[in-house]
Design a binder for these strands. Structure first.
Lengths: 149, 149
DNA sequence: TATTGTTATACTCTATAACTATA
DNA sequence: TATAGTTATAGAGTATAACAATA
């Protein structure tokens, strides 16, 4: 009665939460050369040049305030820059600087090392599967996440 | 040059972080009938009766302080209870009360609904695979996470 | 009037160290 | 002296609302 080996998942959420916490705990500023949040933002900027701050809010699942604070830090480090959008001068277009790209590359290396360590027991095929499934999950869980109005 | 379809993972960490954040954001106290942390702790207690607080620290990836605070809350709600371990009176053995089990069952239902919603596009086979792979990852990422001494 | 970003503020969470009691 | 848990406190993270500039 203590173990139900049906198909009942004993908790995807517990699993995800644990992994996320452990990953975050290991992604120290020392290891990445920057804070984990900075890494996520720069990583997004590399893939989406000239992002608006609202875009970043969605990508980082952070509120407007958090994005502002983080961008202040990044600009102080000369890793990103905010320019006014000529088409709508209320908007900022955020871009990564060359220094930002360099810093990101170092952090990416650290991330790859960490992932390699974590995925050591998992075959390339399985890794691809895992990535594909997680992408699906991410899509589903992000889509209807209505911003608290 | 913008898309490298090698086998380079564009970021398992970003994926996990996003999913974890989104799940946490959706697991409101309203939906679960309790805080997400409480849910995780009770969920662990159901599977491991009479856990010590150190055990809980490891399971929740929280420090001693956080566990104490959370147990204070749970005890105030009459969902758990700390008893002295007769074999070592420094230790506490934490147990779930009947009321705790009831509250957990409601929360479990909410969790299952949420997971069902999230995993809708994923087949049972794929779910099993996802769960298996995540368990492997969790094991690897948790194992060498030496507690900062 | 609505929207984008900023500032100010409060609230929560997490981490650290000192303390109590037991070993 | 070392360990399990507690308390106190500070720091980081997060959420909320008021504000300025622009649409």
């Amino acid at each position: 009665m203590s173990k139900e080996t049906d198909q009942s998942e004993p908790g995807l959420m517990r699993l995800i939460t644990q992994i996320s916490k452990a990953l975050h705990r290991r992604s120290t500023e020392e290891a990445l050369g920057m804070r984990f949040k900075s890494f996520l933002l720069l990583s997004y900027l590399r893939d989406h040049q000239a992002a608006t701050q609202q875009e970043l809010e969605g990508a980082l699942l952070a509120d407007a305030n958090a994005v502002v604070l983080l961008l202040n830090e990044l600009e102080a480090a000369r890793w990103s820059i905010r320019r006014r959008d000529p088409d709508d001068r209320r908007r900022h277009l955020v871009e990564m600087t060359a220094a930002g790209r360099q810093a990101l590359e170092r952090a990416e290396q650290a991330r790859e090392n960490l992932e390699e360590e974590i995925l050591q027991g998992i075959s390339p095929d399985e890794r691809a599967t895992l990535y594909r499934l997680l992408s699906k999950v991410a899509e589903a869980v992000l889509q209807p996440a209505e911003p608290r109005s």
